[in-house]
Amino acid sequence: MRTCIFLLAGAVIASPAHAGGGTPIPEPSNMALFGLGLTGLIVGRMIARRKQNQQDD
């Protein structure tokens, strides 16, 4: 019985508050991870091109 009450209380506390309609705004951590991933792809391509150019010479 106590476990059920704690789980229910945790679900209520953890649920996000809905302030009405509107456009959802991405969280900063999601944007940071996206930016790091994009930067990693760009840097990886630059390194691969540089290696390829050195092998062609």
Rank of each mutant, 00 (worst) to 15 (best):
H18A: 01
V43L: 07
I25H: 14
I5W: 00
L33Q: 15
A9W: 04
L38N: 03
R45H: 14
M1T: 07
G40I: 02
N30K: 11
N53K: 10
Q52P: 00
G40T: 03
L7G: 03
P26Q: 09
I42H: 03
L8S: 14
E27F: 14
T39L: 11
F6K: 06
Q52H: 12
P28M: 10
E27T: 08
L38H: 00
L7Y: 07
P28K: 02
Q52I: 03
I5S: 11
F34T: 10
A11Q: 13
A32Q: 15
G37H: 04
H18E: 11
P28D: 10
L41E: 09
R49V: 14
T39N: 06
V43H: 02
N53H: 10
I47F: 05
P24E: 06
M46L: 15
L41R: 05
L36I: 11
A9K: 01
C4L: 10
G21P: 05
P28A: 09
M31L: 15
A14D: 03
V12S: 04
Q54G: 02
L38I: 07
A48F: 09
N53C: 04
P24V: 06
G40V: 03
I25M: 13
M46W: 11
P16F: 01
S29F: 14
D57H: 11
E27C: 10
M31P: 02
G20M: 03
T39P: 00
S15I: 01
L36W: 07
F34N: 04
F34R: 07
L7W: 06
G22S: 07
A32V: 15
T3Q: 03
L33K: 05
R45E: 15
I42M: 07
P26W: 07
A32D: 12
A19G: 14
R45M: 15
R2C: 03
P16M: 00
M1H: 14
A19P: 06
A48I: 00
P16L: 02
R45Q: 13
T23W: 15
A32C: 13
M1F: 05
A19S: 10
G22F: 11
R2E: 12
G40L: 04
T23C: 10
G35Q: 09
R2I: 04
G22N: 06
N53T: 02
C4W: 04
A14R: 02
G21V: 03
R49G: 09
G35H: 06
G21C: 02
P16W: 02
I13A: 05
Q54L: 12
L8E: 12
L41H: 13
A17K: 07
V12T: 11
L36K: 08
G37V: 07
I42A: 08
I13T: 09
S15F: 12
